[in-house]
Design a protein around this nucleic acid. Structure first.
Length: 270
DNA sequence: AGACAGACCTGTGAGC
DNA sequence: TGCTCACAGGTCTGTC
């Protein structure tokens, strides 16, 4: 599920809905998701106010008045705000009752996501130490990608999905951006020219910005903070379209496994 | 060091 | 209808 646009969609929604709210009670319905949910966090979090909600990479940072909540949605996670009478669903693992009476619920069937609590900003920042640049920032440009990729034999698709290089680009948007830039996903990253990287940078930025505008991509179970789906899936040109005609040239879309992930491409355009 | 496979989980859909 | 199998948006760990 959540790549950068989906996480951004949740952050934007939650910012409008819960900023300034006090977290009155915290309930962990299990003692771990991907990582342990420490019992001691409950007391620390209760009573704190939500001052700010931000995104870094695919992570959601909630700044409280005396600490930080760091959420990762994994593959199937979602955070949504429910009314007080809405019953808990299967796979709701964490819930926080807010001063407005509504309940913030973390739902994650596969439990690949996580929640961490930090008192200390330094420890929070350590979580991001190994991350690459933000794809929508100016630091993400063709010179940056071109320089880092010299000598790299790894396929370019794996290269742009490497969070140490650039954050937030997952399987869907990597496939879409490579299609728009007309680059075959298996091309060695070190063999891609500076000019092609310029096209790729532009297509990554465009595809992410368009997806954010449309509220993300809903394939199966993505929903935003108000439990609404995204609409970007209607704009997907190659992802999920195996054996269907390319929208540009009618050649049938093919797939190849790269880094264990299915990669969709047009053998003619790319 | 870099690149890959496998692991973590559950739900869904295809095929028999 | 009901079973089994492959596969799914991410990332961490271990191994070569």
């Amino acid at each position: 599920m959540p790549e950068l646009p989906e996480v951004q969609t949740i952050v934007t929604g939650l910012t409008q809905l819960v900023l300034g709210e006090q977290i009155q009670t915290v309930c962990f319905y299990r003692d771990n998701i991907r990582f342990p949910l420490l019992k001691s966090w409950k007391k620390s979090i209760e009573g704190q106010r939500i001052d700010q909600i931000q995104r870094r990479a695919k992570l959601i940072i909630m700044t409280l008045d005396q600490g930080y909540l760091l959420w990762h949605m994994g593959m199937t996670g979602s955070l949504r705000l429910c009314s007080s009478d809405e019953p808990k669903r299967q796979h709701d693992h964490v819930e926080m009752t807010l001063s407005c009476g509504r309940i913030l619920r973390y739902h994650d069937p596969r439990r690949f996501g996580y929640l961490k609590y930090f008192k200390d900003e330094k420890k929070l920042l350590d979580s991001f130490a190994h991350y690459g640049v933000e794809p929508l920032s100016e630091a993400f440009n063709e010179q940056y990608l071109w320089q880092l990729s010299r000598g790299v034999r790894q396929p370019v698709k794996n290269f742009i999905m490497n969070q140490k290089i650039v954050v937030g680009v997952g399987n869907i948007y990597a496939c879409e951006a490579l299609f728009i830039a007309k680059i075959h996903p298996e091309t060695a990253a070190g063999k891609v020219t500076k000019k092609s990287y310029k096209n790729l940078i532009n297509s990554i930025k465009t595809v992410l910005q368009t997806a954010i505008k449309q509220g993300g991509t809903t394939l199966k179970d993505f929903e935003n903070a108000e439990a609404k789906p995204g609409y970007f899936q209607q704009a997907l040109q190659v992802y999920g379209r195996k054996a269907q005609p390319c929208l540009t040239c009618q050649t049938l879309i093919k797939t190849v496994k790269l880094g264990g992930r299915n990669s969709f491409y047009c053998p003619n355009c790319q």
